[in-house]
Amino acid sequence: MEVFNVTHSSFSTFILMGIPGLEAAHVWFSIPFSTCYLIGLLGNVMVLFVVGKEQTLHKPMYLLLCMLAITDMGTSTSVVPKTLCIFWFNFKGITMVGCLTQMFFIHAVSAMHSAVLVTMAFDRYVAICNPLRYAIILSNARIANLGLMGLIRAVLFILPLPLFLSRQPFCSNRVISHTHCDNMAVVKISCGNITFNRLYGLVLAFIITGLDLMLVVFSYSLILRAVLRISSKKAHQKALNTCTAHICVMLTSCTFSLFSSLSHRFGQGIAPYVHITLANLYFLVPPMINPIIYGVKTKELRDKFVKYTFRE
């Protein structure tokens, strides 16, 4: 089957190898992949359902949670179904258009996810540092506009990557040693001048992930300064508890995102199967645990989960 794919589609398609060196274990890898994917889908759909059904949750904070849930589902869905086709059925071929489309959605949804996390940090800053004007500064309409701006930013910044690659010549051996069409993985099989994509991809990593992370850190430095000015220890704890869930989500998302992006460029000493396996965690772990984190740490949302899950 593999020989057939390579021989008959080398000039019209790319070949995704999955996890090179661990092909014999692909079926076993599919178990945690599919389990994490299904748990993530179920959790995020539940968040959307509960917030949509409950009028009391139609607030900026929960609208942001819905945006986070949508980007989480988009992140995992852009990669996992194709990966499972490789693991289960050895369907490794993907057209050039399909590959570049997958690349666009992977990076665009990731950029949108980053924008949502920044907006959530700003939301926590306003809630703690300027609570009396919270409803004025952050209305549902304003949150929707910020989400739209994040989407436009993601499309405008990411679209040049596949557009430039679509004009590039590719070698006859179009084998991608990965589970999905990541920008750098596709760039490496191009026979043309790839300087633009290499530099632009690196710039994006710092502009989107790096700048957004700096904005989040800046927001939390202001939050920390405001909290330290509060004399009551109980108020300290209450203020910090409102940020705990977001901090946990930030740590998991940024850790996997930065590792996946930078290890492609500077991880020559890492075994390919180790890099590919760990890179896939970005598409599996955050979408799975984010709804769990917010379900556990946000009392109002947790109560509504219980209401719909265990009602008679």
Score class of each variant (00 low, 15 high):
11 F>G: 10
16 L>T: 06
17 M>G: 08
20 P>F: 00
35 T>P: 07
37 Y>H: 04
45 V>A: 15
46 M>H: 07
48 L>N: 06
56 T>R: 07
58 H>R: 14
58 H>K: 04
64 L>C: 06
68 L>I: 05
72 D>M: 05
73 M>D: 03
81 P>L: 08
85 C>E: 10
89 F>D: 12
91 F>G: 12
94 I>P: 02
101 T>A: 15
106 I>H: 00
115 A>L: 08
116 V>K: 04
122 F>I: 13
128 I>Y: 03
131 P>I: 06
133 R>N: 07
138 L>N: 04
141 A>V: 14
142 R>I: 14
156 L>R: 00
157 F>E: 06
160 P>Y: 05
164 F>P: 03
165 L>C: 14
172 S>H: 14
185 A>D: 12
195 T>W: 07
206 F>I: 04
209 T>P: 04
214 M>E: 06
216 V>D: 01
235 A>K: 13
239 A>P: 03
241 N>A: 10
246 H>W: 07
247 I>A: 10
249 V>I: 14
254 C>M: 15
255 T>D: 09
257 S>C: 13
257 S>R: 11
259 F>S: 14
260 S>F: 09
260 S>R: 02
263 S>E: 07
265 R>P: 01
265 R>V: 15
273 Y>N: 09
275 H>A: 09
279 A>G: 03
281 L>T: 09
292 I>A: 13
294 Y>G: 02
300 E>M: 10
307 K>G: 09
